[in-house]
Design a protein around this nucleic acid. Structure first.
Length: 175
DNA sequence: GCCAACGTTGGC
DNA sequence: GCCAACGTTGGC
């Protein structure tokens, strides 16, 4: 039960092993601009076991993240982020004053986990969901699978690179 | 605002 | 362990 056996962590540069993710945020709640203003943030409030498991087991420091704005017209990728702190307990689950409070979460069994992310680059032009859906290079991407609603999801390298190309970016632009 | 898809809960 | 009911997600 440890780690995702399907997760590829192939080294793009041959030196640094990076995996890719997509994280959804509602811009009315927490937009990419806020991540830039904050410098980094803890990704609290995820209450889905699949997403939790990925944050707990699979997301590593330096992994790259497509920061996605959901519940917005149009829904879109707004920027690139990176994981800057690996999985640790989501303390909001143990805070009775938090809207994410979960009475089953304890210090011994925190139940929910989170990672920290930091901004890497805001896209000069957002990439709308529809453009991703219409891009043959993005075929098979979880984001555009019917019924898919995971707020944290793995992204294959070829798909990450395809989205980057849509933004006229390459990996070297991120360093 | 609608609603399909999905995850969780809880009775049995 | 099944599954109906319910709540949430999130595109449209």
């Amino acid at each position: 039960m440890h780690g995702n056996p399907n997760l590829k962590r192939a080294g793009t540069t041959g030196l640094i092993m990076v995996a890719y993710w997509l994280m959804k945020s509602e811009p009315h709640v927490y937009p990419y601009e806020q991540l830039v203003a904050d410098g980094s943030t803890h990704w609290d409030g995820v209450r889905n076991y699949q997403a939790r498991n990925m944050m707990r087991d699979d997301m590593k420091e330096g992994d790259l993240v497509l920061f996605y704005h959901s519940n917005f017209k149009p829904p879109h990728v707004a920027g690139i982020a990176r994981v800057c702190k690996e999985g640790y307990p989501d303390f909001t689950a143990q805070d009775p004053n938090s809207k994410y409070f979960d009475s089953k979460a304890t210090p011994e069994n925190p139940r929910w986990m989170m990672v920290d992310i930091a901004p890497v680059m805001q896209l000069e032009q957002i990439i709308p969901l529809e453009d991703i859906r219409n891009n043959p290079e993005c075929e098979g991407m979880l984001l555009i699978r019917k019924g898919q609603r995971l707020s944290v999801q793995p992204v294959e390298e070829e798909h990450f690179l395809a989205v980057m190309r849509m933004a006229n970016l390459s990996l070297s632009d991120l360093s």
